[in-house]
Design a protein around this nucleic acid. Sequence first.
DNA 1: AATGAATGAGCCTTCATTCAT
DNA 2: TATGAATGAAGGCTCATTCAT
Lengths: 213, 213, 213, 213
Amino acid sequence: MAARRPARAAAANGEVRTGGSGRSDRRAELLRIAAGLFATRGYKQTTVRDIADEAGILSGSLYHHFSSKEEMLDEILRDFLGRLLERFTAIEEQGRDPKQVLDQLIEHSFATIHETPEAVALYQNESGALSGQPGFAYVDQLGRKIEEIWIRALTAGQKAGVFRDDVDAGMTYRFIRDTVWCAVRWYRPRGRFRHEAVAEQYLRVLYGGLVTE
Amino acid sequence: MAARRPARAAAANGEVRTGGSGRSDRRAELLRIAAGLFATRGYKQTTVRDIADEAGILSGSLYHHFSSKEEMLDEILRDFLGRLLERFTAIEEQGRDPKQVLDQLIEHSFATIHETPEAVALYQNESGALSGQPGFAYVDQLGRKIEEIWIRALTAGQKAGVFRDDVDAGMTYRFIRDTVWCAVRWYRPRGRFRHEAVAEQYLRVLYGGLVTE
Amino acid sequence: MAARRPARAAAANGEVRTGGSGRSDRRAELLRIAAGLFATRGYKQTTVRDIADEAGILSGSLYHHFSSKEEMLDEILRDFLGRLLERFTAIEEQGRDPKQVLDQLIEHSFATIHETPEAVALYQNESGALSGQPGFAYVDQLGRKIEEIWIRALTAGQKAGVFRDDVDAGMTYRFIRDTVWCAVRWYRPRGRFRHEAVAEQYLRVLYGGLVTE
Amino acid sequence: MAARRPARAAAANGEVRTGGSGRSDRRAELLRIAAGLFATRGYKQTTVRDIADEAGILSGSLYHHFSSKEEMLDEILRDFLGRLLERFTAIEEQGRDPKQVLDQLIEHSFATIHETPEAVALYQNESGALSGQPGFAYVDQLGRKIEEIWIRALTAGQKAGVFRDDVDAGMTYRFIRDTVWCAVRWYRPRGRFRHEAVAEQYLRVLYGGLVTE
DNA sequence: AATGAATGAGCCTTCATTCAT
DNA sequence: TATGAATGAAGGCTCATTCAT
């Protein structure tokens, strides 16, 4: 404590921070490792030993950084959902017409899959089991807020006559949502199609329809 | 699985139930219970005790019917995938124009979700983890055969000028597949929309596009 | 289940029971082993492996009989305190004058130390840590009921003029209780003094006083 | 412990506190915290983190002051038992008649409970488990010396005709000892009865007996 | 004198599976 | 067919202790 006060004072003074960005580097690295394993093997099937092995430490040492395996899951999901809601909210607020908003929601979704596929896969796979668990109420809550943003855009589009209104908006939302997020299962960040191309092709089918005149 | 269908058919035909047939009934019942639990909690998270409890026996007694928990999973998936491939094959063989084939593939998919949601959910959730495991090579194999049927229909449609060809057929397949099968997560057999209505709405969006003129 | 029904019917018919007293023999034996270890090493310091080792099984196998280590502790204490309160209640109800009641309470206490020293030691050592824990509220409750029986006897004796009343009854109770129950620490069932002798000597000092005249 | 008493005496005498004395102060403070926790939760159940938390440092930092958790226990017990034996020896040496000696032994015991309840409770709870452990032979040794002092007083009283001799002296000692020291479990330094009153009431019952003429 | 990261041994518990009855 | 007891491997977590900084 006292031993570190000088260091902190130095940082506060605006001096250059050598090395990493400080205290929570290790934490962040461990979370990255955990997210990767959780996404690949599933949360339950991933053992704390798996995580520790990949980090090069013993499993018990993880508990110096986190109080439980669940806390890691929590931190990853909270961060992911928080960020996502933030971006979607920004898109809704700045967007003008509903189609532009939907464009951007979809584009950003594919971009998110590109950038943090582990967190997306994790959310896709575990949110079901988490739903209803006391400590993870926020998963449902934030999920609902995100849903509302999409549905507002769709409904507004229907009212404006831009989107067809002979299909239930809620169902349309689920159609789009499932296609978009499930793409995390097959999308490869370094594959043939980049995420922008995937988004573009999806928008073409979605907007124009599969059938020609 | 296919090997046991005759036995069940026999029972349905009103023939005398011998000891063997009764045994088969118990097996089927246990598989139904297992499928339900596997779908809800996930395969790994479901314990043999969960299954036995719901069947009203002790966990050890399950091993008179199955040699392992994995065998249960295997039997459920084999049955499901076999049936599905059978039906899809029939659709492809009898179908004339590509659009009609796609229609029926989609309609049957939603019907399958309606009829055996547990098996669908199970396949959706576990196929990823199973892929690559020696005993479950058939999962990938049958999955590939099914994929080929869909892609043949899409490509034929593009060639015939019915389906737009400025989008990759493989990607279109994945778009459709994800939306269709992921519906198992939210579709409720006794909900507001019946599976025929869901299929119809989806086809409307898919074929005609979301955007009006 | 069905397999055992005949056996039970036989027992109900009054036939001789060969071997042990049936189903819960193993449970009872395991509890005896656990009680002994808990008393000697303390509850926390006793590992489930210790118990299993002494029973000749693996630690995991204990969980076929008990759902947790705590459940063992619970069962032992519940049984002990229940029995004790029952006996004390009987003594109070049948007793005529207060001194006779106190006699018997003390005699029975030493007899209990003689018969189930492990349970007594366990209660002595662990009740403090258990007090306040949700699942062990009954420990305090039954303890309080027992205390009330003793204090009623002492107070009645004071009112009747048999016991000195220049000393607080509650404090007298604690004096007696501590001496009596702490004896479990040094009393040896097969030692020089049998429990009746210990009780008699204690009563002599307690009633007549240490000082002559 | 005894070795450090001079240092503390020095500080108490108002001498200048050097760095060394400050270090000693920290040690003493940490020992006080540890004793309190050991007494409340038990030695084993108290973690070094508990102690460090209450001291406002990290658990690893404790090892600058003590080489192990056991050393803390050792230091506390050595200090307590040493002091106690010292005082009891003084009482025996200056006392004239046996009853006066017993008076003072008992009074000082209750005073000790009043002044250092943590150490008393610690000794009561842990001496059993410590007995026989190599590094803690002194616990048994000093305990035996203390016992001898009490028994000498009781035997002398019996010989002098002051104490009843129809009860075994050893057993009388244990009766008294258990009542006296167990009082630490319920005695509250700021409660209704001060320790002098407790001692007085106990002596009244012990000497005169519970039963009136 | 203290921090923070890590160790390594051990603990309670779970669970698929086996097997005598 | 089913029971009930047991196995053995593993899993999440705790904790006294070490050590470079």
